[in-house]
């Protein structure tokens, strides 16, 4: 795992595309942007998920997403905590280098 900007995406069959762009500092997520053609309501929930993942170590990603979805009562369609976590995992494993 190297520091720098990393990107990856995840598109489950029948689901929507989730793309994650992140940077690491000292092995933890320093900045993260989650984009794609999915639905999260209220929409500000995506910023809450991003904020919850800042400072997270890779093992805590799924639990942090689950907590935001539960605590804010977010409604999701075409996307799930699992597909967001999978996109983050792929990015952390090296992902695609940004163009």
């Amino acid at each position: 795992m190297t520091d720098g900007r990393l990107e990856a995406s995840c598109k489950p069959t029948g689901g929507k595309l989730v793309r994650v762009s992140l940077s690491l500092a000292g092995g933890r997520i320093e900045r993260i942007a989650i984009t794609g053609d999915f639905f999260i309501m209220p929409e500000s929930g995506v910023e809450d998920i991003e904020a919850a993942l800042v400072g997270a170590d890779p093992g805590a990603v799924r639990a942090r997403i689950d907590a935001v979805v539960r605590n804010r009562g977010l409604r999701l369609a075409g996307v799930s905590p699992a597909s967001i976590a999978e996109a983050v995992r792929r990015a952390l494993e090296g992902g695609e280098r940004p163009a």
Partner: peptide
Amino acid sequence: IGYFQDPER
């Protein structure tokens, strides 16, 4: 573009 999309992409 959708609310969550990156226009450049």
